[in-house]
Each structure stands twice: as C-alpha cells, then as structure tokens.
C-alpha cells in the first residue's frame, strides 16, 4: 500500500514536471499573510510568491496586513476558518504568535514562516524559509578572498548597530577572513543601511587612510551603502570598482546598474523567491516527510557580467 502511494506520488511529481497536472494540484489552497509593501524588496517577494503559486496551480489567498500584527492574526484565523491546506506567514514582529500558531496546529494546518522568524516554540510551525545572513557575509568574504588571492586591506560599512542583519553579516564575513592572514579590516563603522550614511562614512575612511591608497576593497552590509560609497570614492578622485573593489549584499535593482557600469564588483541577492521552497515544504509535510526547521534560501552572488541583463529584468517590473 505504502509503495503504491509512493508510486502515485512519483507519478504526480513527474506530471508536475511536465506541466500536465495543474488540475490535479488545484485542490491545494494556501493562505499568505504578508506584512505589507513597505519596501521594494517586499513588493518583489509578494509578486514572486504569487507567481509561484500561479505556476503550480495553487489557489493563494493573499492578505496584506499593512504592518499590523493584529491584522495578521485576524488573517491567519480566517485562513484556519476557511480550512486552507497551509499558511505562509511573514511575521511583522517576533513575539505574540503562540496562541494563533497553536490554533493552526490544532486545526492540523502547517504554517511556514517566510523571511523572518518568531519567538515561539518550534513545534508550533512547520518551518522557516529565510536567508542566512551569516552565510551571506561568508559568501562575500569568500568572493573577495578569491578575487584578491587572500591579500587585501579592506573597510567595512556596517548596517544599523544591533540589527540581526548587521551582526550576522559582520560575523559571517569575519569568520572567513580570519583564515587569511593577509586580509584585514582596517576600519568598520555603521552607515545605518542608508545611501547618505554609506557616503559619509566612506568619505571619512578615505581621509583616514591616506586618501584611500591603502584600501583594497569595501564590504558593505547592504547595496544602498555601497552606492553611497561609490559616490564618495568618485569624488575623492578614485575609480570605484577598479581602485577599490566593492562587494555588497541585497541585490537591489540599482546595484545591477552600478555593476554594469563597472562601479561595483559583486552583490549577493537577498532572495525574495521564497514561494517555491515554502510550497515544497507544505507539500512534503502533507506527504508525511520530515521538514527541517530552517530552510535556508540564500540568493546567488551576482557579478558584473550578467548585471546589465539583470538590471533590465528588475527595473522593468
């Protein structure tokens, strides 16, 4: 019997692969409680999840909470009442979810957290699908080490002090460059994740380090600070991307333009395409398989060679 089920499942997956089983999957109804649309990144996350649902023939019930937890809790409760097959939740805050997650669990509906975590018992949700900031930092450091053969004195533009993105991106980067005795962070200050912050901090770094002559690279915790640094470097009479290598994280549209223009050298995307792994996880749990509690959905590292094309793709939408 079990074997039969497996066979049927294999057949079904093959059909999906061939794009024939839209009708068979249309049964799946999933609720998605999104925080809102406060940033360009979140807008593209929503669009990506909707597109993925459509591709798979999933009936996606979408709810925009406009940054309010009470709206999200209401949405999750209404999803439970509708008897959906699974719930995606992008939690606006970390705390206060225990009760509603328990209600979902009691109703037997798996909840997948997307892009952020919650401070609740791990048994209350199926899994979390999110980037690992530590890995992003490590990837940036690895790229830089490979590019410079492990010889580089760099400066770091940190994100907002105390934010998990800043802490983890710093730690991941540091862990890798600790392996290279000739790589050193000369200076590290917070540019608050903003363009003007990045520009101001970079200006002072350039002055403090003899007009930037001793600096081989800039590592920015996000693209916006890198874009600010590009201007500071230009105004100091240096060529960003050549005199100083620049690596940053997020993959916002503007960084692809800068890369295409040769002004920065690499960016790691903060992956907004969380729909596919989230739906896979729900499917797997319905099939009775084990799902890890954290599915790391890290984005790829983009380089200037594909930047022009990527920019066209991203600025068009």
């Amino acid at each position: 019997m079990k074997r039969l089920k497996k066979l049927a499942f294999a057949g079904a997956t093959m059909c999906i692969g061939m794009g024939l089983s839209v009708a068979a999957q249309a049964e799946m109804i999933i609720g998605f409680s999104q925080i809102g649309s406060e940033s360009g990144w979140r807008t593209s996350e929503t669009a990506s999840i909707k597109a993925e649902a459509e591709k798979r023939g999933i009936d996606l019930k979408f709810s925009d909470a406009q940054q309010k937890q009470e709206n999200q809790i209401k949405a999750v409760r209404s999803f439970i009442a509708q008897g959906v097959d699974g719930i995606l939740l992008a939690p606006v805050v970390e705390t206060g979810w225990d009760q509603v997650l328990k209600e979902a669990k009691d109703a037997g509906i798996p909840v997948v957290l997307v892009d952020r975590g919650v401070a609740a018992d791990k048994s209350l949700y199926l899994t979390k699908v999110a980037s690992d900031f530590v890995q992003e930092g490590a990837l940036a450091a690895s790229w830089l080490a490979a590019k410079t053969n492990g010889v580089c004195d760099l400066v770091e533009l940190q994100g907002t002090v105390g934010s998990s993105a800043a802490n983890d991106r710093k730690a991941g980067f540091q862990a890798i460059i600790d392996n290279f005795p000739n790589m050193k962070i000369l200076r590290s200050q917070s540019g608050d994740f903003t363009r003007s912050g990045g520009k101001e901090v970079m200006e002072s770094f350039l002055k403090a380090e003899n007009g930037g002559k001793g600096i081989c690279a800039v590592y920015a915790h996000n693209d916006d600070m890198a874009l600010g640094a590009v201007q500071a470097i230009k105004e100091a009479g240096l060529e960003p991307g050549k005199d100083l290598l620049i690596v940053s994280i997020d993959g916002v549209p503007d960084i692809f333009k800068a890369m295409a223009d040769g002004e920065t050298n690499a960016s790691i995307e903060l992956n907004p395409h969380l729909g596919a792994p989230a739906f896979d996880a729900i499917k797997a749990s319905m099939d009775g398989k084990d799902v890890p509690k954290w599915i790391k959905a890290n984005g790829p590292l983009y380089l200037p060679d594909t930047a022009a094309e990527e920019y066209k793709k991203r600025s068009g939408s």
Binding site: D192, F193, T194, R195, S196, G197, D224, L227, Q231
Partner: peptide, 11 residues
C-alpha cells in the same frame, strides 16, 4: 542631490 536620489525612508 548629494546621493542623486530621494530616500523617503531615511532622508
């Protein structure tokens, strides 16, 4: 003009 962009969240 300094950053050639309007950053409504942070300016």
């Amino acid at each position: 003009a300094d950053i050639r962009g309007a950053d409504a969240n942070n300016a």
